[in-house]
Design a protein around this nucleic acid. Structure first.
Lengths: 159, 159
DNA sequence: CAGTGGTTTCAGCACATACTGAAATTCCTG
DNA sequence: CAGGAATTTCAGTATGTGCTGAAACCACTG
């Protein structure tokens, strides 16, 4: 399935492109984004670098680079099968949770910077008001997600 | 104050650079990031393009470009004073809140993409499992953020 | 130990982005 | 209406990044 002649093939590619666009906003290169998008809906769910390459129309060299990036980020994982030398790639189950986590962590990394900033100009001076304000907002963000119940796992739940 | 000979000048610049680094992770150009960082701790809190330019060591031309970007993003605002032609820039009070909001919105923009993806392959098919999972996590993110109480405002006034 | 299907490395190209100096522009002041 | 201090525009440069083809590199099989 999911071959280049299948019904809805164009729609599938268009969807993959939308996913890639979203990731590109966070500095993820196009082919890595497309790879991730493709691995989200391809059938079968595990595919080789060559399969992905032809599916999204990128060179194998690029696939090597971008698959390494994605595995390093722990968003996709490598799988091997007994008696086969082909490596199959698969999107990680909690890939999106990791994406969210890192997004939050990225913004929240400012918290310590803000703290140092307050020390720099004197924590209680009016001049530190702006830094203090930012520190307050970011701390709030961190707390909200720390206190939030983790997403329910694997049970059916949609809408 | 905050002149280039002041005590702790180097520390101040280093701090500004750290802020810029954080923003650069989200695709904000260096000078825009430095400008934002500088406007967070400078004294007085409102400064002209020329002042910022000399403070962070960038050309005025760059300041024009980057200040336009920052004002378009509504992170800094322009201020004029009666009888003066100089435009003073100031970091917005809720700048960081906006940053957080947009970060969340950026990730959450995937929610509709996921919904369309499920429609594409059939919402209840096993093939849609990965897309469904991602949709679940992102929906959770959006809900957490929507339900969270907004950050308490300090209601502190500037000098 | 040669052959083969797969992956990786490397050099180079194409493209985009950030920054600057200098000229053009604006708009207040005298 | 000239003078001048500010900002803006513009052309050009430098830097960096992503992608590809071709060659090198495994690691199994026969």
């Amino acid at each position: 399935m999911s071959e280049s002649g299948s019904p809805g093939w164009e729609d599938t590619l268009a969807w993959v492109e939308r996913v890639a666009t979203i990731f590109s906003a966070d500095g993820i290169p196009p082919i890595a984004g497309r790879t991730l998008g493709w691995l989200m809906i391809c059938d079968p769910p595990e595919q080789s670098a060559g399969q992905i390459s032809t599916a999204i129309g990128a060179s194998r060299a690029s696939l090597t680079t971008n698959l390494r990036m994605l595995t390093t980020m722990e968003l996709v994982s490598r799988r091997t099968r007994a008696g086969e030398r082909t490596v199959y790639y698969r999107v990680d189950d909690d890939a999106w949770y990791k994406v969210v986590q890192r997004q939050i962590a990225g913004v929240a990394s400012y918290v310590e910077v803000a703290r140092d900033g307050m020390d720099l100009v004197g924590p209680d001076t009016p001049r530190a008001a702006r830094v203090r304000e930012s520190h307050r907002v970011l701390s709030w963000l961190v707390r909200v997600f720390a206190d939030a119940p983790p997403p329910p796992s694997e049970t059916e739940d949609r809408s």
